[in-house]
């Protein structure tokens, strides 16, 4: 058998003909980056290629001085006969699937993705290929997401109730992606939206790139404390677990994550509310996405890869799990 176009190497997913990696987890010369989350976009590579909307995010997270080139979705780059193009993954702003074509062989690497249109990231588009390297963070049939508007109305209700009881609503969510998704879709008539520094810094980077993120107020020592009991306060998990939280006396703590599907995960975090809200595909989404690629070979990464591969093999695919260092969705 001839060598695979994309090989699973120690440092990451490797495109041999052009000596380039996709989302490598050790420093390499040339890296194509699917999106700005820290387990996919790491420090220390010689040159970065990513979607236009990810450029500023990468610079903010990895340093102004990185060498980075942005491309729009669907534009084909021909590098020594290897055709590279990025396609919307619907995961977060700037997230992309990477399509690689060489001598008639087509591979797609998804990075992280979700199939629901969240109104902020460009919606996921299936890309036909023969080899599909797919994440499967939530690759078990117990994971089923409700539509975004349903979850958002749950958050709105919880927030409204907290305002009525005169207590702050602190919502834990990823600083990049989920935070903005919440900010842009909750009902701003309920009260102000306050943000932890990590979230607000990201907001500013995105706003500077021309992305419309609704109004938020950064929490500083000078912030008017009378706002707290009316506000929805968005913080990353690390903020929830730090003394920063003590500012908000009597706060109700919510966590937005796909893991909140499970009662044990909710109870372990000792949160008051768990909202099942993820930027990854659920069981149905994964299965539909895979089908739509018409690929024969499937390589699941992140999460329950063995179980998911076994399932895919029973469905007639040729599937084998890939060991990576991606982390899926982490609740701290």
């Amino acid at each position: 058998m001839q060598r695979k176009l994309i090989q699973f190497k120690e440092r990451g997913l490797y495109i041999a003909p052009i000596d380039t990696y996709i989302d490598p987890w050790r420093p390499v010369g040339k890296a194509i980056i699917t999106h700005g989350h820290s387990d996919h976009a790491r420090r220390g590579h010689g040159a970065y290629l990513c979607h236009d909307d990810s450029v500023n995010i990468l610079k903010y997270r990895l340093g102004e001085d990185i060498k980075v080139q942005g491309v729009p979705y669907d534009q084909v780059l021909d590098i020594d006969g290897v055709k590279i193009s990025l396609h919307p993954a619907g995961h977060i702003i700037g997230s992309a699937q990477v399509r690689v074509e060489y001598r008639g062989e087509i591979w797609v690497v998804t990075g992280d993705y979700k199939t629901e249109d969240d109104g902020l990231a460009v919606a996921f588009e299936p890309v036909k290929c023969q080899h599909f390297i797919t994440e499967c963070t939530f690759g078990l049939p117990v994971f089923k997401w409700k539509p975004q508007e349903v979850v958002i109305s749950e958050i709105n209700e919880w927030w409204t109730e907290n305002v009525r009881l005169g207590r702050p609503s602190v919502l834990s969510s990823y600083a990049l992606g989920k935070a903005q998704r919440v900010i842009n879709s909750v009902n701003h008539d309920i009260g102000p939206i306050l943000t932890h520094g990590a979230v607000e810094n990201t907001n500013e980077v995105l706003r500077a790139s021309g992305i419309d993120i609704k109004e938020t107020i950064r929490v500083t020592p000078d912030t008017d404390k009378s706002l707290f009991n009316k506000a929805l306060i968005i913080a990353p998990g690390s903020g929830i677990n730090s003394p920063w939280l003590n500012k908000f006396k009597n706060a109700s703590i919510g966590i937005a994550s796909g893991w909140m599907m499970m009662r044990g995960a909710r109870r372990r975090r000792a949160a008051d509310r768990g909202f099942v809200f993820s930027d990854h595909a659920d069981w149905l989404g994964l299965n539909e996405a895979i089908k739509a690629t018409e690929a024969e070979y499937i390589y699941p990464t992140h999460g329950y890869t063995n179980v998911f591969s076994k399932w895919l093999n029973e469905q007639g695919y040729i599937a084998s799990p890939v060991e990576t260092e991606y982390e899926g969705e982490v609740v701290e």
Binding site: P141, V142, K144, G264, K310
Partner: peptide
Amino acid sequence: LFEESYHIVGDLAEAISLI
């Protein structure tokens, strides 16, 4: 696949309710 899911969820009543 149900058994795997049950194993991850950890509680039979809950696993069935989710599936």
